[in-house]
Protein backbone atom coordinates (compact mmCIF):
# COMPACT_ATOMS: atom_id res chain seq x y z
CA UNK A 1 0.00 0.00 0.00
CA UNK A 2 1.61 3.17 -1.20
CA UNK A 3 0.18 5.60 1.33
CA UNK A 4 1.85 8.58 -0.23
CA UNK A 5 0.10 7.90 -3.52
CA UNK A 6 -3.22 7.26 -1.79
CA UNK A 7 -2.93 10.46 0.18
CA UNK A 8 -2.02 12.46 -2.88
CA UNK A 9 -4.87 10.98 -4.90
CA UNK A 10 -7.32 11.57 -2.09
CA UNK A 11 -6.18 15.14 -1.89
CA UNK A 12 -6.78 15.73 -5.58
CA UNK A 13 -10.19 14.09 -5.45
CA UNK A 14 -11.34 15.88 -2.33
CA UNK A 15 -10.38 19.16 -3.96
CA UNK A 16 -13.02 18.61 -6.65
CA UNK A 17 -15.64 17.00 -4.40
CA UNK A 18 -17.36 20.36 -3.83
CA UNK A 19 -17.86 20.54 -7.59
CA UNK A 20 -19.60 17.18 -7.56
CA UNK A 21 -21.80 18.31 -4.70
CA UNK A 22 -22.61 21.53 -6.54
CA UNK A 23 -23.58 19.63 -9.68
CA UNK A 24 -25.79 17.34 -7.65
CA UNK A 25 -27.46 20.04 -5.61
CA UNK A 26 -28.25 22.30 -8.55
CA UNK A 27 -29.66 19.55 -10.73
CA UNK A 28 -31.87 18.27 -7.91
CA UNK A 29 -33.16 21.78 -7.25
CA UNK A 30 -33.83 22.72 -10.85
CA UNK A 31 -35.07 19.28 -11.80
CA UNK A 32 -37.38 19.11 -8.81
CA UNK A 33 -39.07 22.38 -9.65
CA UNK A 34 -39.28 21.54 -13.34
CA UNK A 35 -40.87 18.24 -12.39
CA UNK A 36 -43.63 20.00 -10.48
CA UNK A 37 -44.73 21.71 -13.69
CA UNK A 38 -44.47 18.55 -15.74
CA UNK A 39 -46.44 16.54 -13.21
CA UNK A 40 -49.01 19.31 -13.06
CA UNK A 41 -49.26 19.22 -16.83
CA UNK A 42 -49.74 15.49 -16.82
CA UNK A 43 -52.61 15.51 -14.36
CA UNK A 44 -54.10 18.69 -15.76
CA UNK A 45 -56.65 16.95 -17.95
CA UNK A 46 -55.96 19.25 -20.92
CA UNK A 47 -55.26 16.72 -23.70
CA UNK A 48 -52.39 18.43 -25.56
CA UNK A 49 -50.59 19.52 -22.41
CA UNK A 50 -51.05 16.15 -20.81
CA UNK A 51 -49.69 14.34 -23.84
CA UNK A 52 -46.71 16.66 -24.19
CA UNK A 53 -45.76 16.09 -20.58
CA UNK A 54 -46.20 12.35 -20.96
CA UNK A 55 -43.94 12.52 -24.02
CA UNK A 56 -41.34 14.45 -22.04
CA UNK A 57 -41.31 11.79 -19.35
CA UNK A 58 -41.11 9.02 -21.95
CA UNK A 59 -38.17 10.58 -23.74
CA UNK A 60 -36.12 11.44 -20.68
CA UNK A 61 -36.74 8.13 -18.93
CA UNK A 62 -36.42 5.97 -22.00
CA UNK A 63 -33.04 7.16 -23.26
CA UNK A 64 -29.60 7.10 -21.64
CA UNK A 65 -28.51 10.24 -19.79
CA UNK A 66 -25.26 10.20 -21.75
CA UNK A 67 -26.88 10.68 -25.11
CA UNK A 68 -29.10 13.42 -23.70
CA UNK A 69 -26.03 15.19 -22.40
CA UNK A 70 -24.13 14.89 -25.67
CA UNK A 71 -27.16 16.04 -27.58
CA UNK A 72 -27.37 19.16 -25.45
CA UNK A 73 -23.64 19.84 -25.33
CA UNK A 74 -22.59 19.02 -28.92
CA UNK A 75 -25.81 18.75 -30.84
CA UNK A 76 -27.62 21.90 -29.92
CA UNK A 77 -24.43 23.92 -30.21
CA UNK A 78 -24.34 23.06 -33.87
CA UNK A 79 -26.95 25.62 -34.79
CA UNK A 80 -25.99 29.20 -35.43
CA UNK A 81 -29.35 30.36 -34.13
CA UNK A 82 -28.63 28.80 -30.79
CA UNK A 83 -25.14 30.25 -30.63
CA UNK A 84 -26.54 33.73 -31.03
CA UNK A 85 -29.43 33.18 -28.68
CA UNK A 86 -30.20 33.96 -25.12
CA UNK A 87 -29.30 30.45 -24.01
CA UNK A 88 -25.80 30.39 -25.39
CA UNK A 89 -23.88 31.39 -22.27
CA UNK A 90 -25.52 28.52 -20.44
CA UNK A 91 -24.97 25.96 -23.15
CA UNK A 92 -21.42 26.97 -23.96
CA UNK A 93 -20.16 26.56 -20.43
CA UNK A 94 -19.66 22.86 -19.78
CA UNK A 95 -20.59 23.04 -16.10
CA UNK A 96 -23.94 24.74 -16.60
CA UNK A 97 -24.64 22.62 -19.66
CA UNK A 98 -24.07 19.52 -17.57
CA UNK A 99 -26.32 20.85 -14.82
CA UNK A 100 -29.04 21.59 -17.35
CA UNK A 101 -28.82 18.12 -18.85
CA UNK A 102 -28.88 16.45 -15.45
CA UNK A 103 -31.82 18.61 -14.42
CA UNK A 104 -33.82 17.77 -17.53
CA UNK A 105 -33.21 14.08 -16.95
CA UNK A 106 -34.08 14.01 -13.29
CA UNK A 107 -37.04 16.21 -14.15
CA UNK A 108 -38.54 13.34 -16.10
CA UNK A 109 -38.07 10.78 -13.32
CA UNK A 110 -39.13 13.15 -10.58
CA UNK A 111 -42.26 14.16 -12.47
CA UNK A 112 -43.39 10.55 -12.29
CA UNK A 113 -42.58 10.49 -8.59
CA UNK A 114 -44.59 13.65 -7.92
CA UNK A 115 -47.45 12.23 -9.98
CA UNK A 116 -47.38 9.06 -7.93
CA UNK A 117 -47.46 11.09 -4.76
CA UNK A 118 -50.44 13.10 -5.97
CA UNK A 119 -52.34 9.97 -6.89
CA UNK A 120 -51.66 8.49 -3.49
CA UNK A 121 -53.44 11.27 -1.66
CA UNK A 122 -56.59 9.67 -0.26
CA UNK A 123 -59.68 11.17 -1.86
CA UNK A 124 -61.44 11.24 1.48
CA UNK A 125 -58.88 13.65 2.90
CA UNK A 126 -59.35 16.01 -0.03
CA UNK A 127 -63.08 15.75 0.50
CA UNK A 128 -62.71 16.72 4.10
CA UNK A 129 -60.81 19.80 3.00
CA UNK A 130 -63.55 20.76 0.58
CA UNK A 131 -66.18 20.16 3.26
CA UNK A 132 -64.77 22.91 5.42
CA UNK A 133 -64.73 25.30 2.52
CA UNK A 134 -61.22 24.99 1.11
CA UNK A 135 -60.67 25.07 -2.61
CA UNK A 136 -58.19 25.90 -5.33
CA UNK A 137 -54.73 26.91 -4.29
CA UNK A 138 -55.44 26.83 -0.57
CA UNK A 139 -56.64 23.26 -0.78
CA UNK A 140 -53.55 22.35 -2.76
CA UNK A 141 -51.15 24.14 -0.49
CA UNK A 142 -52.58 22.99 2.84
CA UNK A 143 -53.89 19.50 2.12
CA UNK A 144 -52.88 17.97 -1.20
CA UNK A 145 -49.24 19.01 -1.50
CA UNK A 146 -48.12 18.10 2.04
CA UNK A 147 -49.68 14.64 1.82
CA UNK A 148 -48.37 14.09 -1.72
CA UNK A 149 -44.86 15.07 -0.66
CA UNK A 150 -44.87 12.65 2.25
CA UNK A 151 -46.07 9.83 0.01
CA UNK A 152 -43.40 10.64 -2.56
CA UNK A 153 -40.57 10.93 -0.08
CA UNK A 154 -39.23 7.35 -0.19
CA UNK A 155 -39.12 7.25 -3.99
CA UNK A 156 -37.73 10.77 -4.14
CA UNK A 157 -35.01 9.88 -1.67
CA UNK A 158 -33.95 7.07 -3.97
CA UNK A 159 -33.88 9.45 -6.93
CA UNK A 160 -31.76 11.97 -5.05
CA UNK A 161 -29.17 9.35 -4.22
CA UNK A 162 -29.14 8.10 -7.80
CA UNK A 163 -28.46 11.61 -9.11
CA UNK A 164 -25.29 11.73 -7.07
CA UNK A 165 -24.01 8.85 -9.19
CA UNK A 166 -25.23 10.48 -12.39
CA UNK A 167 -23.05 13.54 -11.83
CA UNK A 168 -20.13 11.33 -12.83
CA UNK A 169 -21.25 11.60 -16.45
CA UNK A 170 -20.37 15.29 -16.43
CA UNK A 171 -16.76 14.15 -16.69
CA UNK A 172 -17.52 13.09 -20.26
CA UNK A 173 -18.31 16.68 -21.20
CA UNK A 174 -15.05 17.78 -19.63
CA UNK A 175 -16.28 18.85 -16.23
CA UNK A 176 -13.46 18.04 -13.84
CA UNK A 177 -15.41 16.53 -11.01
CA UNK A 178 -14.41 13.49 -8.96
CA UNK A 179 -14.84 10.82 -11.65
CA UNK A 180 -13.17 12.98 -14.29
CA UNK A 181 -10.13 13.64 -12.11
CA UNK A 182 -10.02 9.98 -11.09
CA UNK A 183 -9.96 8.89 -14.70
CA UNK A 184 -7.22 11.36 -15.47
CA UNK A 185 -5.08 10.04 -12.62
CA UNK A 186 -5.65 6.45 -13.74
CA UNK A 187 -4.70 7.16 -17.32
CA UNK A 188 -1.46 8.81 -16.16
CA UNK A 189 -0.44 6.33 -13.50
CA UNK A 190 -2.32 3.14 -14.39
CA UNK A 191 -2.84 2.51 -10.68
CA UNK A 192 -6.45 1.68 -11.19
CA UNK A 193 -7.36 -0.06 -7.96
CA UNK A 194 -5.97 2.54 -5.60
CA UNK A 195 -7.64 5.40 -7.42
CA UNK A 196 -10.89 3.46 -7.63
CA UNK A 197 -10.85 2.87 -3.89
CA UNK A 198 -10.32 6.56 -3.18
CA UNK A 199 -12.97 7.78 -5.58
CA UNK A 200 -15.41 5.03 -4.60
CA UNK A 201 -14.96 5.88 -0.96
CA UNK A 202 -15.82 9.51 -1.57
CA UNK A 203 -19.06 8.59 -3.32
CA UNK A 204 -19.99 6.05 -0.66
CA UNK A 205 -19.46 8.57 2.11
CA UNK A 206 -21.49 11.20 0.25
CA UNK A 207 -24.31 8.67 -0.23
CA UNK A 208 -24.17 7.72 3.42
CA UNK A 209 -24.49 11.34 4.51
CA UNK A 210 -27.34 12.00 2.10
CA UNK A 211 -29.26 8.93 3.21
CA UNK A 212 -28.82 9.89 6.84
CA UNK A 213 -30.06 13.39 6.16
CA UNK A 214 -33.08 12.09 4.24
CA UNK A 215 -33.94 9.67 7.04
CA UNK A 216 -33.93 12.57 9.45
CA UNK A 217 -36.27 14.53 7.17
CA UNK A 218 -38.57 11.55 6.81
CA UNK A 219 -38.62 11.06 10.53
CA UNK A 220 -39.39 14.71 11.09
CA UNK A 221 -42.33 14.85 8.72
CA UNK A 222 -44.00 11.66 9.85
CA UNK A 223 -44.82 11.93 13.54
CA UNK A 224 -48.23 10.50 12.67
CA UNK A 225 -46.66 7.22 11.60
CA UNK A 226 -44.62 6.69 14.70
CA UNK A 227 -45.78 4.74 17.73
CA UNK A 228 -47.75 6.61 20.30
CA UNK A 229 -45.34 7.77 22.97
CA UNK A 230 -45.91 5.48 25.92
CA UNK A 231 -46.11 6.95 29.39
CA UNK A 232 -42.71 5.88 30.59
CA UNK A 233 -40.26 6.83 33.24
CA UNK A 234 -39.12 10.37 32.57
CA UNK A 235 -36.11 10.42 30.33
CA UNK A 236 -36.94 7.23 28.45
CA UNK A 237 -37.33 7.77 24.68
CA UNK A 238 -40.63 6.88 23.00
CA UNK A 239 -40.62 4.00 20.53
CA UNK A 240 -40.20 4.91 16.88
CA UNK A 241 -41.47 3.18 13.80
CA UNK A 242 -38.79 1.95 11.43
CA UNK A 243 -37.87 4.41 8.70
CA UNK A 244 -39.50 3.61 5.39
CA UNK A 245 -36.50 4.89 3.43
CA UNK A 246 -35.08 2.15 1.31
CA UNK A 247 -31.62 2.02 -0.21
CA UNK A 248 -31.54 2.91 -3.93
CA UNK A 249 -34.07 0.64 -5.53
CA UNK A 250 -34.31 -0.58 -9.07
CA UNK A 251 -36.86 1.30 -11.13
CA UNK A 252 -35.27 3.76 -13.48
Amino acid sequence: MDFAFLADTMGQLLAVTPLTIELWFLCILIGGILAVFIAWGRVSGVPVVSQLCAAYVFVFRGSPLLIQMFLLYYGVAQFAEVRHSFFWPVLRDNFSCAVLSLALCTGGYTAEIWRGGLQAVPAREIEAGRAIGMSGFTLFRRIIAPIALRQALPAYSTEIVLMMKSTSLASLVTVWEVTGVAQRIISHTYRTFEVFICAGLIYLVLNFLIIRALRAVEHYVSPHLRDRPRPLLPGAPPAHAASPIALPEVPR
Binding site: L169, T179, Y190, T192, A199, G200, Y203, N207, L247
Partner: peptide, 17 residues
Protein backbone atom coordinates in the same frame (compact mmCIF):
# COMPACT_ATOMS: atom_id res chain seq x y z
CA UNK B 1 -20.55 -0.87 -3.42
CA UNK B 2 -22.23 -1.64 -6.71
CA UNK B 3 -25.23 0.57 -6.05
CA UNK B 4 -23.35 3.40 -4.41
CA UNK B 5 -20.40 3.87 -6.73
CA UNK B 6 -21.04 5.52 -10.12
CA UNK B 7 -21.38 3.08 -13.01
CA UNK B 8 -18.79 5.00 -15.01
CA UNK B 9 -16.23 4.48 -12.30
CA UNK B 10 -16.93 0.75 -12.23
CA UNK B 11 -16.49 0.50 -15.97
CA UNK B 12 -13.19 2.38 -15.69
CA UNK B 13 -12.15 -0.04 -12.96
CA UNK B 14 -12.76 -3.07 -15.14
CA UNK B 15 -11.43 -1.47 -18.31
CA UNK B 16 -8.20 0.01 -16.94
CA UNK B 17 -7.82 -2.55 -14.20
Amino acid sequence: IFRGVPELLIIYLIYFG
